[in-house]
Design a protein around this nucleic acid. Sequence first.
RNA 1: GCGUCGGUGGCGGAGUGGACAAUCGCACUUGGCUGUAAACCAAGCGCCCAUCGGGCUUCGGGGGUUCGAAUCCCUCCCGACGCA
Length: 427
Amino acid sequence: MQPLSFRIEKKVAGALTRAGSILTAHGKINTPAFIPVGTKATIKSLTPEQVKNTGAQALLVNTYHLYLQPGDELIRDAGGLHKFMNWEGPIMADSGGFQVFSLGAAYGLKLSKIGQFGRSDLPSKSDLGKELSKVVSQADPNPPFLERADEALLPRLAKIGEDGVSFKSHLDGSVHFITPEKSIEIQHNFGADIIFAFDECTSPAEDLRYQREALERTHRWALRSLEHHRSLIRANKRIDVPALFGIVQGGRHEDLRKKSATIISGMNFDGFGIGGSFAKEDMSNAVKWVNEILPEDKPRHLLGIGEPEDLFTGVLNGVDLFDCVAPTRNARNGTLYTAQGKINITNAQFTKDFSPIESGCECYTCKNYTRSYLSHLFRGKEMLAGTLATIHNLFFILHLVGKMRQVILEDNFFDFREDFLKNYVRE
RNA sequence: GCGUCGGUGGCGGAGUGGACAAUCGCACUUGGCUGUAAACCAAGCGCCCAUCGGGCUUCGGGGGUUCGAAUCCCUCCCGACGCA
């Protein structure tokens, strides 16, 4: 009857850290776990077999993108996502809540162009783009915070209302109104194992007043998501029902994070997502505040986080699941992970470097190819470049988190963390 | 040998008397990327100092006209095509 069972296998004394396992209808996920992102029902540049060979236990897909193309009903009619995309393991679906941010507050007039347009001028395509990141740096002397007054000039693709969010499709310009109920219906049609409540991922640029207002709306949407989820289960009589995770928001504010964790905890979700944006420096606290309140016996997913140092922060503070586009997107853009930090394989120094990306790495790419060859593929814009780089980056991150699980079980998490971070150079 | 067209920064290719150190591509160099509108985006790319900026030498070579030349004239060199 339970859509999912979660078992804690080991807890680290003196921390929120734990290792466990989640059992879904499509198999088990050993935690902590990193879940690669396959937004449009594909891990870009890899076949499912290749994804599996990197060590992935589960995948995460996106509601917004698949709803627009090819459509959630088509996926349902195809026999569900697992069959449609040929992935037998667990599948998670994000609710579209992140697109409220990425197509809303984060997207619009490039900051460098602000002030160059009067009301009558229309910005050109090159003046538009993504300017805000989910994770901002507190150290940045010029944080990319927009004045709210500029909003009238910004042609945003997502507009937030009380009942839901109006999206202007990036594919054909058509307008789609996504409510919490609609998001849940779409995710049910996918046949995903774990789905998320529809939320608003707020911009780090928003002030406290707005964060509070958005948080309350997200809480109302959480309840609506949960109620609709239950009514769909009652109506459909499916054997395999998806697990629904509620999402905690609250930005960087302690009182909001704690309030959100308390309220979402009270709604009887199957697990929890920790969402939103914050300064990188605030991440540790934000996660800790939340996880000290969330029920211990349910899984916690830190949404959209995946840089090595952040994965340690999450695990240290009680996170079980992560998803992030960083390893896959970085790979396609030539940034590769090594134990010493990230390298940009397109740099001139690697053209004649006949060593593997990382010596000792057991991934397919490192066992068979050199940095020089990768450099050549990237410079030649060959498709195989993205494939080999993605295989390495996913393997690196998946095995890093896998190792975290192992050392938790072996009571050696802190030493491992210290050793890794000592060698891993950020920036 | 004669004629025609043409020689611009690593390459392609604009410009055809002042706003040109020279549009734009490509290549090259370096950044960035955290629930993916991203196999993407940004910056730099003659030399020197440099914060804004300033100075110097450039458009096949040489000479000339002009206040001013990549742009006009003469000449030489080189290339393509045509005629001998």
